[in-house]
Design a binder for these strands. Sequence first.
DNA 1: GCCAACGTTGGC
DNA 2: GCCAACGTTGGC
Length: 135
Amino acid sequence: MQYFLVKSEPFKYSWDKFNQDGRTFWDGVRNYQARNNLKEMKEGDLVLFYHSNEGKNVVGVAKVVKEFYQDPTTEDKNWVVVDLVPVETLKNPVSLETIKKDERLIDIALVRQGRLSVMQLKQAEFDRILELGAG
DNA sequence: GCCAACGTTGGC
DNA sequence: GCCAACGTTGGC
């Protein structure tokens, strides 16, 4: 079991919209590092959903239901998507500020490499964020 | 709206 | 293959 975090601008695709849809393919990744992380995802892996720009917090947990395949929005073979479904909404969204202040989360890619949109998390980091989100 | 970080592109 | 220029992301 692996753990990940994905970013989305709420204007583009929000957690609410995701829950209304019930399932989505995660498209729009146009960065090789992020793409490689997408390819690492296996069915059943858990993914934190982070709102960038607006909110700047982790709002919920999603699950991988289909491993990577060709991005249907482009012909370019470089890009892939995975299918995700929502699992649970965090009671207390965990803000970037909170994450930055937590010594156990100081090392995660969200902080270290701000621009990366798909990243892997250690289980301890994933658990810690859920703990903070439970309120 | 600004700017830092950083990935990508293209000239040499 | 290096590196300057440029574009994009995302925090502030």
